[in-house]
């Protein structure tokens, strides 16, 4: 009964690679760009050390909300001219990484901004009173004190975007989700469908367990 699966083993291996590629690109973009954006949005929010840049805060918040409003599948299609412009095609895992990255950046920016709010204002104030610069407050206070929350935020990000990357399969994005749709759904190969779901469940469990272990490990509070 596993004939289909055995026959498709090379395809499955390729799909896993494609999924990992999409995840690597969009998570990196999210952590670097989205993380920075989230930090700056936090610092410029009311009562924080860069609150005087209120206009930046308003614009950045609006931008995050706009991008987070798009249903992902619509974003996928809507940015395809942009995708073609930078990747040269709108099909395949590299192309799918563009809308995935866009969505992940703004998703993670919001997550980070909210995570940093858990750092007590008094601790930030103590650093200010000791003469810390805004940069030192970020690198030596916020990122240190919020680190277990930041790890959990990355865990949520990774799990969410594993599932988003499956949606990319709808437009020929490749990856595990694409496999599930092409064989499991269009060709009624139930065993392939089950195999892909089992694969995704294992990946989600792995990410979640790793994230929780790491978050506990770095938390000295």
């Amino acid at each position: 009964m596993f004939d289909n699966i055995i026959e498709l083993l090379p395809e499955i291996a390729k799909a896993i690679n494609e999924t990992l590629l999409m995840m690597a690109i969009c998570l990196t973009a999210a952590v670097l760009i989205g993380g920075s954006l989230g930090i700056v949005v936090f610092l410029t929010s009311r009562g924080q050390v860069l609150a005087r840049y209120r206009h930046f805060n308003l614009v950045a918040n609006a931008l995050i909300n706009v991008f987070r409003s798009f249903p992902f599948i619509i974003l996928l299609v809507a940015v395809s001219p942009f995708t073609r412009h930078i990747v040269g095609t709108s099909i395949g895992p590299l192309a799918a990484s563009v809308p995935l990255s866009l969505a992940a950046i703004f998703y993670f920016a919001r997550l980070i901004e909210q995570t940093l709010r858990d750092v007590p204002r008094g601790v930030i104030e103590a650093a200010e009173a000791m003469g810390a610069t805004p940069r030192q407050i970020v690198t030596q206070v916020l990122l240190v004190e919020a680190r277990s929350g930041l790890v959990l935020a990355m865990t949520v990000l990774a799990v969410s975007f594993l599932s988003y990357s499956a949606v990319a399969g709808v437009v020929g994005g490749g990856g595990i989700g694409d496999l599930a749709i092409r064989y499991g759904y269009y060709r009624f190969q139930t065993d392939v469908m089950i195999a892909t779901i089992v694969l995704l469940v294992i990946m989600v469990q792995g990410i979640q367990l790793l994230g929780q272990w790491l978050a506990r490990h770095v938390d000295k509070r």
């Binding site: 007590p120 008094g122 601790v123 104030e125 103590a126 200010e128 009173a129 000791m130 003469g131 810390a132 610069t133 206070v141 240190v144 004190e145 680190r147 770095v218 938390d219 000295k220 509070r221």
Partner: peptide, 21 residues
């Protein structure tokens, strides 16, 4: 101002220590 603050210590009701250090 930051340089001047380094010569002014401060302590707080709720201590405000870094918990992860």
């Amino acid at each position: 101002l930051r340089a001047a603050r380094r010569r002014i210590g401060m302590i707080f009701q709720h201590f405000n220590l870094l918990h992860n250090r």
